[in-house]
Amino acid sequence: MIMVRAIVRPDKKEVVLDELSSAGFHAATVVDVVGRGKQKGIKFGDVIYDEIPKSLIMLVIHDEDKEDVLDVIIRHAKTGEAGAFGDGKIFISSTDEVYTVSSGVAGL
């Protein structure tokens, strides 16, 4: 199993979650975060904004679903056809074990 952490624009959060749900990946955890990226924030005149609000979508999936999930997120979190700076990043880490609290059963 792998954990996918996608940082996306807050206004793309809803559409990404809806599309993930219709692609069969309903379960997700969402956190509102602030951060900066490679462009070192946004600069307007002398003011640099380096705490830009984003949404972090976290979900744990089976290894074989990785390509599907990445495709859905990238397709819908992008701004326009070409994409733009600030559309976000996706991090993937491995997950050893998963437990459901209500049943205590291991596995997704």
Binding site: A27, T95, E97
Partner: peptide, 12 residues
Amino acid sequence: YNVGDGKIFVLP
């Protein structure tokens, strides 16, 4: 309640 009690993930 049978549902909604949460999930636990273990990562290296």
